[in-house]
Each structure stands twice: as structure tokens, then as C-alpha cells.
């Protein structure tokens, strides 16, 4: 019996630890959350019977503004990261000098060497009313009064784009790196100009990287809570903040659960798009 080729039941044993892990740390909590989201709020915010749909009502009612804002912020973050990240990844991966490529990648992941919280606090200093940016603009006489930058949706966007940008660049870099430029020659040979060659050959063939990067940026952005907490104030409040509050001291666990379930549904939908276009395509090749 060859373990490396095993197609029968025994190969399943290899996956057993992972299945156990998933069961205890993922399926079980998920199931609990779903159940709790249909229960009523008891004293101190815990869940109790009877079952109710009230929390979903509120989620899609009063909180829909925040839900939509979260999706909007995550979408804009993803799109901006993509528009800056794709050309950058293209630039890096087409450099002939390997050392230069590695240096560029090093600078892209350099921010990861410091704590995320610290980096986000740094943005407070930059964006504050008396912050660096306002100070510079004032001293140049471009503005009369400090701009309101901190505690806005804009600040959240800046923080998220800054924080998740590497997750967009790296997968795209990898896919362009793998791309063979003989296909560009082939497209040119068949009469396609540079523009058409890019959109009909290069982009589709590097799409797996684009989709992976987009998923890696969108998913954590939609559920972000540290960045909006520190930079967004009330105007930049996101669903992640709402959820974290419900599980705190005088919160509402069933409501928090309902919000979580809806957020997970949003994430799942994006993943479905990814699977449909990304994995499918790669599988075909």
C-alpha cells in the first residue's frame, strides 16, 4: 500500500487533524454564532430564548447604512489598491535586475516589520487637525483653516489602503512574474497593438493574481475594526466596530452575532466570485 498514491479511505486519515481543527475552531463557533443570532437579548447582553428575527431586522434596518458603508469602503480600498498595485507589480516583475526586484519587494513589506496598531496611530498624527499634513498645507498658505481629515471615511480609506496594499501587490507580482512574454510577441504578431495585447492577453492571464489580491484586500477591509476605530470616528464607523461593541460590556451578543453572520455572507459572496473566476480559470489552463 502506497501512502503517496492512496486514493482509498486511508488517504482520509492524513486530513484528520485538519478536519478536527476545523470542526473545533471553525464549524462549532460558527454554528454557535448562527444560533445565537436568532435568540433574544438577555440581561447583560447575553443570549436567551425565545428565538427572534429582530436582530436581522435591525441589521438590515438602522444598521444598513453602516453595512453599506463597510462594503463601499472595502470596495474602494480594493479598487485603489488594484489601480496602484497592478502597475507597480508590473514594473517590479519586469525589471531585469533580480536584486532590484527584491529590493522593491523588501520596501513593500517593510511596514509589516512594525506593529499595525503603531502604524495606524502614526496616521492619526499625520491626519489630525494639528497634524503634519495640515501643518504643511497651512504653512504653505494653501488653506486658511485646518482640513478635517481625521475621523472621516477618507481617513479610514487611507488607513486601509496603506495597510492592505502589500496583499494586493504580492499576488499580482507573482502572477506577472510567471507570465511568459512570448504571449505578447504572439499577440503583436497576430496584429494586436499594445493596448489590445494588454487587455486581451496579459490581463486575462494575470487575472488569478488580481483576484487573489482583491480577495486578500477586500475580505479583511470589510471586517476591519482597528483602523476605523482609530481613524474613522463616528463618520467612519464600520460593521467591524459595531460587532466588537456588541460583544463588549453592555453589548448585545445576539445582535453582534446577526451582524457577524451578515458580514460573513458578504465575504462568502466575494469568495464565490473569486472561486468562479479565479480558480476555475487556473484549473482550465
Amino acid at each position: 500500500m502506497n501512502w503517496f498514491k492512496s486514493q482509498d479511505g486511508r488517504g482520509f486519515l492524513l486530513a484528520l487533524p485538519a478536519i478536527f481543527w476545523l470542526g473545533v475552531f471553525f464549524i462549532l463557533p460558527l454554528f454557535t454564532i448562527v444560533v445565537i443570532s436568532f435568540m433574544s437579548r438577555g440581561a447583560g447582553g447575553v443570549a436567551e430564548l425565545p428565538y427572534t428575527l429582530a436582530h436581522y431586522d435591525r441589521t438590515f434596518g438602522v444598521f444598513s447604512v453602516i453595512l453599506i458603508r463597510s462594503i463601499r469602503i472595502a470596495s474602494i480600498t480594493t479598487i485603489v489598491c488594484l489601480f496602484i498595485g497592478y502597475p507597480l507589480a508590473f514594473f517590479i516583475s519586469t525589471r531585469k535586475n533580480r536584486n532590484f526586484q527584491n529590493l522593491c519587494l523588501f520596501f513593500i513589506i517593510l511596514p509589516f516589520w512594525t506593529n499595525f496598531l503603531v502604524r495606524t496611530y502614526a496616521w492619526r498624527i499625520l491626519l489630525g487637525d494639528a497634524g503634519t499634513i495640515n501643518a504643511i498645507l497651512l504653512s504653505w498658505g494653501w488653506i486658511e483653516e485646518p482640513l478635517r481629515l481625521l475621523n472621516t471615511e477618507f481617513a479610514v480609506l487611507v488607513g486601509l489602503i496603506y495597510g492592505f496594499f502589500p496583499f494586493m501587490v504580492l499576488p499580482i507580482y507573482a502572477s506577472i512574474e510567471r507570465f511568459d512574454f512570448k504571449f505578447v510577441d504572439a499577440a503583436h504578431d497576430l496584429g494586436a497593438n499594445d493596448w489590445t495585447t494588454f487587455w486581451r492577453v496579459v490581463f486575462p492571464m494575470t487575472l488569478p493574481g488580481v483576484l487573489a489580491g482583491s480577495a486578500l484586500v477586500f475580505i479583511p477591509s470589510v471586517g476591519a475594526f482597528i483602523t476605523p476605530d482609530l481613524l474613522g470616528g463616528t463618520r467612519g464607523l464600520m460593521i467591524g466596530n459595531l460587532i466588537s461593541r456588541q460583544f463588549g460590556g453592555s453589548g448585545n451578543m445576539p445582535l453582534g452575532s446577526a451582524l457577524s453572520v451578515v458580514m460573513m455572507a458578504v465575504v462568502l459572496l466575494t469568495l464565490l466570485v473569486y472561486v468562479r473566476f479565479g480558480i476555475n480559470r487556473e484549473g482550465d489552463d
Binding site: K182, F183, A186, D189, L190, M205, R281, D284, D285
Partner: peptide, 14 residues
């Protein structure tokens, strides 16, 4: 007005 048959064909995989 020329076309090429490439050494490793370079057919578009997608």
C-alpha cells in the same frame, strides 16, 4: 505582413 509559428507554439492558454 508576416506571421510567426513560434518554437513552443505560444498558443493563448486562456
Amino acid at each position: 505582413p508576416v506571421n510567426t509559428v513560434f518554437q513552443d507554439y505560444a498558443l493563448f492558454p486562456h
